[in-house]
Amino acid sequence: MLFLNASSEHVPRSYIYTLGEIPVNVTHVYVVSIAPVGPGNISVGYFRITGNAPGLGGPPSELFAESVVLPLHLLITDPANRTLFNADIVTPDFFAVDFNTRGDYLVYLTNNGNKSESIPIGVQFGEGNLQNREFDKYMLSVTLTLIGVILIVVGVVKKLVAKPVLSC
């Protein structure tokens, strides 16, 4: 039961969030709360994405995107506060991230342009990528299922072994 659920639970392929405008020279912080779902991309500056983002595998398809162009300073940290990326960029762009820890990934955006803009943040995962499931839930499911199977086998064996003794 748990194995069935966890094995079929796949993270949504694309999730994009847009806040209000970021003024010039101001830093906004986005929080990406996510389970450990393996390799993916963080996108900055894409309002809508259709097709596979680069580097995520899956069947090749033409990427269609609506985006905004803006120079930014980008800082990404993981739940343990380790820096994953820290540099100046020009949107739109993708950044490969291995989501291997459950928790909050922080994305700091500083508007280095000359006008206020809305900057969408998103996460993308490869289509049909078996790695993109909640790893901790999956391992728990496998463990509990194995324990259940072992208990059932032990119970059946004990019953089979006990029978001939009782009938003697």
Binding site: Y17, H28, V29, A35, I121, E134
Partner: peptide, 9 residues
């Protein structure tokens, strides 16, 4: 629901 959420602090 799968834990996947983006928001501001």
């Amino acid at each position: 629901h799968v834990l996947l959420n983006i928001s501001t602090q």
